[in-house]
Amino acid sequence: MQTMTVTDAVSAALAEEMRRDDRVLIFGEGVATKRKDLLAEFGAARVRNTPLAEGIIAGTAAGAAATGLRPVVDLLFAPFLCYAMDEIVNSAGKLRYMSGGQFAFPMVVLAMTGGGWGVGAQHNHNVEAWFVHSPGLKVVMPSTAADYKGLLKAAIRDENPVLFFTDIALGYAPGAVPEGEVVVPLGKAAVRREGADVTLVSYAKSVHACLQAADRLAAQGMAAEVIDLRTLKPLDEETILRSARKTGRVVVVHEASRMCGVGAEIAALVAEKAFGDLRAPVMRLTGPDAPAPASFPLEQAFAPSADAVVETVGRLVGLVPA
């Protein structure tokens, strides 16, 4: 094992995949400036800065993928994906189907999301559910440095367009990363903690809030199981349902707003396929339906905390008044 930050894990994955396959290239906003090590090793033909033109960047990636390359593009902040929706959703996401499989679109779109830097609402907006709802796309949002590396390698090798979100607050968080060739498959959740009394389902930084909450709940005599989705699409329904049937109680936690979010899909899934095993309604703990504040203290209050998770579980089991 080696210790590295999430940012370094992403760089390591990019370097390994670019060495493995000369069709892999990366371009986008500030890429060559931020990743000088990649520029030095692979040259300007494969590591390129671009203008601040998200639609052109994504459209170029879709075209490059259709011709046999495997582009990775960095659009910086998730809200900037608004400028590239047509290229990602209408072109990359749909043209493989529309061409009858004659074209593939193996491209990865990197973007930062969530609170942690106080960058304000136009740079901080959790939009992952938009792309989960879009056919033909895959969506990845890990919580650990090891998974950032292993899942990015899998995303680059996938034959479909993958939205790969980095939670801003995790960018410089250190973690243990296996040495050597480790590829984490898309569509497989991780059980971060075993438990029998309640299931906490989450992804990205909210996983860590759930783990902290699980420690506090254990002190109260409750064993919480924590599931890290890692990949939002394809969704690991089997792991979610197995845990829901075991514990009979489910709380879904994420920073994105509640309305039509990933938590709503998981709640519907559990209600449809594990209703007979539930001992309480599925609950969601999410960010508010409001633009994210620029103030750092308010931004921290915007995201679900460990305290809020403990309180929600308490209401679920009747220890705290509803």
Rank of each mutant, 00 (worst) to 15 (best):
T144L: 10
A303T: 08
V177T: 08
L76N: 14
L38T: 11
E255W: 14
I168T: 14
F80K: 07
V24C: 02
L39W: 00
N160C: 04
L232G: 09
P185I: 15
A169H: 07
E16N: 00
G263A: 15
T5M: 08
E41H: 01
T7K: 04
S202A: 15
R23D: 09
P281T: 12
T60S: 13
R157K: 09
H125M: 01
V317H: 12
A274E: 06
V127E: 00
G287M: 01
A280D: 02
D86K: 02
G318N: 01
P178K: 08
M85G: 04
K205P: 06
A9L: 06
K94P: 12
M112T: 01
K94C: 09
E255C: 03
D236R: 02
A290G: 00
L186K: 09
A9K: 09
A64K: 00
K94M: 04
E181C: 14
L235W: 01
A224E: 15
H208C: 03
A303M: 14
A66K: 11
I156K: 11
F296T: 07
V253K: 10
E159L: 06
G93V: 12
P161G: 10
L285D: 04
D236V: 00
A129H: 08
P291V: 14
E181N: 14
A306S: 15
C210F: 09
Q300W: 10
N124F: 15
R284L: 03
R258C: 07
L95N: 14
W130R: 01
A44N: 01
V198A: 04
E194Q: 11
P135N: 06
K188E: 13
P174F: 11
A15Y: 14
V191I: 07
A224D: 14
R192C: 11
D236M: 10
E159H: 00
E128K: 02
L200E: 10
G314M: 01
L69D: 04
A264W: 09
L235T: 13
V72A: 05
R242Y: 13
A204S: 11
Q102H: 14
P304D: 07
L25E: 14
V31Y: 04
V320E: 08
A271I: 05
A271K: 06
E54L: 07
F165P: 07
V72T: 13
